[in-house]
Design a binder for these strands. Structure first.
Lengths: 225, 225, 225, 225
DNA sequence: GATGAATGAGCGTTCATTCAT
DNA sequence: AATGAATGAACGCTCATTCAT
């Protein structure tokens, strides 16, 4: 599986980095450590200085790869969506029935990643938890409209549209496929966070997986004529 | 309407402030200006220094009211949810039919606030746009679990539960009322942001109001047995 | 003499400072120490950090007074020219004969300040040496044309014009009074520097005062019809 | 003219460079680009990094030629004086009358270079403007006394002495020939800068050439017994 | 000889916060 | 109660420089 995964790895917009971190040993250490560190202390108090200390290097070296911590977060989330799309391909491969396809797609988008992926230097489980908590900070910013970031959300958009298309296969007249799918993705993220920190906002019992079940039902009922 | 509204005004958890800003002229200026300023430059680059300049006062004075900018944001969002709950009461008053009640509730939660509210020193339109963009930052933080903030999300939780109860009136067996309603609230916020900045993630045409229609249908279909 | 001198002290363009350093104890320490420090290590390697250390304070405190080291240098040179003009007034007071007046003026502009001035917290001798070595850096900069600096060289300009007028008293037809006087001022500065560091560029023997004599002769011969 | 000029080219003190930039293609690009760049952004914000970018090379490569940006500036000014001395030879060649020689010499030192010199990779017009603005920074430094820089000002000194000798031919008893000539050179530089940026310090109207005329008269009157 | 990668050091700046008045 | 002055700490960033290839 190594080879295939390493192919995915490159599918990150160049505009997020100065030099692709996956092409050097230091770069990879930056990725690994930043995931650990953001998980630990949160993106807000995450700084290049702290990251530099944790990889036993210096800030200047990190600037060779990313021009700001914001760009680094974009890199990570972009990578995550690109990786998720890749997993989606596998999940849908050779599955014909649209209902089945949609069910599987939603399961993928709303369940926790549980197994690690061998052959990857990136810890996807930790990364997914970063995406849940911090990714909104990547777009909820005043810079979101800048041209150079136009391409950055492509991965996410693409994923939404891919699943949206399955919805349309089932009900070609449904008017809001993207709205529905992005609601599911963001919603699942939120519910997972609520389940852990603000349980009264959800009906998810920690441990069980009501989230996936709920969103599957919601989607199918919503798109039924 | 002045009197009634000013009653709402006090319904903010004390743990968010050192001294209630609504009890003094300076405090009110802090609220007004912070809303303007956060709207303008975003919460991340919003600082007490800049706020102090814009109210022609001094950082130290703001510390009399809020112990951090984070607490100030919590105050504003709490105020917002408390205000929203208040509006909900009005919307539902004397409406008996559960279907009708739910429809109205969702409309309230998913539509843009359009009219200002006279008698309020707080610009609710601007505030709602802050809540959309920045409120997730108020809870997506490592401090979220700290005891003293336990009560802070009460307003939001209460609102979710209030509407959740209407859901249960319609279908007492529905298992995930809170999950559904918080998905709607967060979803509507996101969609509104996407519509403006990342339109490919939504099917909302700017100007129209597909969002409200979509969520109403989604909710009713989802809770139908 | 105290009182009169303290009057001069305020004659510095406000655009050079954020808060007038002469109005507080810390501000005065900044002035004194910066003069010492620039003298010692040169303006190029002079930084706010080093200055802060030498006054046993921190950089942030210095920023209360000056927004950059460049502005601080402008403050010092402006102060110096304003002070020089003040000394000029005294030197010319009650002297009627134009020849005499010019001779005295040139002497003032070309001789080393030797006596300290009691009642001043600023060490004028050290300051004058800074002006000789570093002041050109205050105007030889890409910012020189910016509007906000328009008024900054007024002291220097005014001094040049004041002495230029004496030249015109002696020879009203002389076409280049300002050119002549600014040549003298800058020239005397250079020669004093050369005498110390690059003696082959001058004919000044260190210790003697050929510089003053030379410029006096030069001026009188040049303006004679 | 090529051959003769390329002879001049080598007349730069070795102590300024690690490897003579004129001996390689990259070295020449360094010279050309540094002149452009210093002109554009000023010496203070000129760095090896920016220079490296503009020659599409790398900082490390520049260090092969110059050990610091300060040394590079010294190289350029030294080259300039050496070049000026060379032009002086041509200007004085076959001119016998001392008065005439002095007049021509001063004209050379105080007028703007207008024509470019074919056969030179160095843009002398731009370089002369650098020397006017930045050269004082080359010697107004705390390092000026260091041994290895002792020889660096030889070109300038030599030029001053060469013209000083003409002064002595005319008036052998004149005591300050070097002082006079260095005053003229520095003065002309200053006046040219003032004319453009601080016109009230001069009587030079931009466009005309009062500077040359003024200094010629000044010199002749000053040295007349 | 030229380059790419990495680093150590330090600068300018801003922030949040405290203290005395 | 509000303010002015000062501070400690950290951040983002750039620079000059070195090393290995």
């Amino acid at each position: 599986m190594n080879n295939i995964l390493s192919k995915v790895v490159f599918d990150v917009k160049e505009s997020t980095y100065v030099k692709d971190p996956q092409t050097s040993e230091l770069g990879n250490r930056i990725l690994e450590s930043s995931i650990d560190l953001i998980n630990e202390i949160g993106f807000d108090s995450f700084t290049f200085r702290k990251l530099a200390q944790s990889i036993k290097s210096v800030e200047a070296s990190i600037y060779r790869y990313f021009e700001s911590k914001h760009k680094l977060l974009l890199y990570l989330t972009t990578w995550y969506w690109s990786f998720t799309e890749y997993r989606l391909e596998f999940t849908l491969a050779n599955v014909e029935a649209p209902d089945d396809r949609l069910k599987r797609a939603i399961h993928l988008l709303t369940s926790e990643i549980e197994e690690g992926f061998s052959g990857l230097n990136i810890d996807v489980i930790k990364l997914s938890s970063i995406v849940i908590i911090e990714s909104s900070k990547a777009y909820l910013t005043k810079d979101v409209d800048q041209e150079n970031e136009a391409g950055i959300f492509l991965g996410y958009k693409h994923l939404v549209e891919r699943v949206g298309e399955i919805v349309l296969e089932i009900n070609p007249e449904f008017k809001y496929p993207n709205m529905l799918i992005s609601t599911v993705i963001e919603g699942a993220h939120n519910q997972r966070f609520f389940a852990e920190h603000l349980p009264r906002l959800t009906n998810q019992v920690k441990g069980e997986d009501a989230i996936c079940e709920f969103y599957q039902k919601m989607v199918f009922k919503t798109i039924t004529k």
